[in-house]
């Protein structure tokens, strides 16, 4: 599927898995509310949604963005849209007019999340 994917052992008695970037399973859009950024993560196909639900947990997203955000991560599920919504608190250096960041409104945190790797069946 991807030049970037690589095979890994899935552990004893389990099927072989490959790790692929979320970019291959999902698309995303992000925005801001004050110092909180939101990232909406949307499955490219309905069958990918359960993979997102299982692997792209709030804790995993918090680890992915460690050092880049100051607050906690919340996750909401929208099964009707095949989407997850993440709130990244303290992500925008104060947000709005206060922020010194190029991405003061968190517009490209969407694709930053899509760099995360998840395991899929080989």
């Amino acid at each position: 599927m991807s030049k970037r994917s690589r095979a890994v052992e899935g552990g004893r008695g389990r099927s072989r898995k490959r790790r692929v970037p979320l970019l291959e399973l999902a698309h995303a859009r992000s925005g801001d509310k004050g110092d909180t950024a939101n990232v909406g993560l949307i499955a490219l196909k309905p069958e990918y949604y359960p993979i997102l639900v299982k692997q792209v947990t709030a804790a995993r997203v918090a680890r992915h963005f460690r050092g880049m955000i100051k607050g906690p991560v919340e996750r909401y599920e929208l099964p009707n849209l095949g989407a997850l919504n993440f709130l990244l608190h303290g992500a925008l250096d104060g947000g709005g007019t206060i922020s010194l960041k190029t991405d003061a409104q968190g517009k490209v945190l969407s694709t930053a999340l899509l760099r995360m790797e998840v395991a899929v069946s080989a």
Partner: peptide, 14 residues
Amino acid sequence: AGVTEQLVYEMGDP
């Protein structure tokens, strides 16, 4: 897909 992207834009608790 495009409408879904907009629906989740600036979303809090859906």
